[in-house]
Amino acid sequence: MSNKDIQKKETAVPHSVERINDQPVFIPAVDIIEDNNCFKIIADIPGTDKNSIDVKFEKNILTIRAECPEDSYKGELVYSEYKTGNYERSFSVSDEIDSKKIEAKYDKGVLTLILPKAASVKPRTIEVKSE
């Protein structure tokens, strides 16, 4: 899963398609971090409830979906910079990932996904023996 793969996936999703749900759908901003053992995807999904988050892995596509309820307030909205709606984003994941061990955590509006690398692709140090 290189940077290029992710960017390609992003543009390939037709975001202009007609939707059944009238709620707006947002693409959450994400950070992706790689270390020796795993990839970490961190997504900003403020306002969502833990129970409404749906993380799915299917045919090498990892999809996150989350619902964000509308803000409740009395009166009228006089100034608005953000809207509430659903979040949705997909990532194409290669076979390098051990899909059975994907973990998800949610805290303070941030979803963190941990995608452990399969044992076969983890870097291995080979011991040099001397005779």
Partner: peptide, 15 residues
């Protein structure tokens, strides 16, 4: 941020 106003109060929300 969003700003809502009613007769009695303002409500500011920030992401």
């Amino acid at each position: 941020i969003n700003l809502a106003e009613s007769d009695n109060e303002y409500v500011v929300t920030a992401e």
